[in-house]
Design a protein around this nucleic acid. Structure first.
Lengths: 140, 140
DNA sequence: CCGTATCCACCATGATACTG
DNA sequence: CAGTATCATGGTGGATACGG
């Protein structure tokens, strides 16, 4: 079952949650919302993952994430920069190049992110099966 | 620095990401999207956290998460049930009681979720500071 | 008590065209 | 190359009222 989290007991996890489910969720001072809202933005995590290996230029990111529009990429990059997850570097070439890279803060989230992504990968078949079962119960 | 992920090297993380940044992001067969879209829904993770300790009834959840509307709670619960994260049990009281609890799948995501939440908690001050810095550079 | 049924507002995202 | 500007739109989520 749990292979990577043997050292953390369920009750520790529960305790760590208790502090958050009680507090106001709306406010900007709620870290849970602050982080999850960012993850919820469609492209943010993909961008962080794309920058994990090394810095990338704008056009590189467009190629790595083909479905993204330039507009959305720009917005996501600004948000990540605003949060201090990535840094932006304008190189004086002509025409200009712009390089994005993870900050220390950004790199520090790679581990937690990978934990979640790997969970998703492992359990995706289970989730897909559950959805099928649910749908055929709803429309018999 | 990294306290819990010492055993996993950065390059392992990067390798695990490489498989995902290349694949089509839109499709329902993309686990990254499948999971992050769910986490992005405003209340899903809060509900999972609220169910971590024990099963809860509908009205209990409303009390634990005061900002949520009944409609949104219902929707979020249906989605989580559809994915097999939680199960729904109707008790034959009168009027009826309905109990929600985490499935095995749901419990299996508590660890990864806690990892992320704890990262958020630890780094929230850094993020808030970064935002302030960003804003005062934009409007000097 | 546990929802459904409407209606509506907002905002994230996309498409497209233009610019330094 | 790396954006900005503008407009269009779908979908999430809230308010309210009603129902079994």
């Amino acid at each position: 079952m749990p292979e990577r989290h043997k050292n953390r007991s369920d009750s520790d996890v529960i305790e760590s949650f208790k502090r958050w489910i009680a507090m106001p969720v709306i406010a900007p001072q709620c870290p849970v919302r602050d982080v999850l809202d960012r993850l919820g933005e469609k492209w943010s995590t993909l961008i962080v993952m794309a920058l994990a290996e090394r810095s990338r230029r704008f056009a590189e990111l467009v190629k790595l994430i083909p479905d993204i529009s330039k507009r959305s990429l720009t917005h996501a990059l600004r948000n990540l920069e605003e949060d201090g997850i990535i840094t932006r570097h304008v190189l004086p070439t002509k025409p200009v190049s712009v390089e994005y890279r993870l900050s220390d803060l950004g790199r520090s989230m790679l581990g937690p992110l990978a934990t979640l992504i790997n969970w998703a990968e492992r359990n995706h078949p289970v989730i897909r099966a559950a959805r099928l079962r649910y749908r055929e119960k709803e429309t018999p």
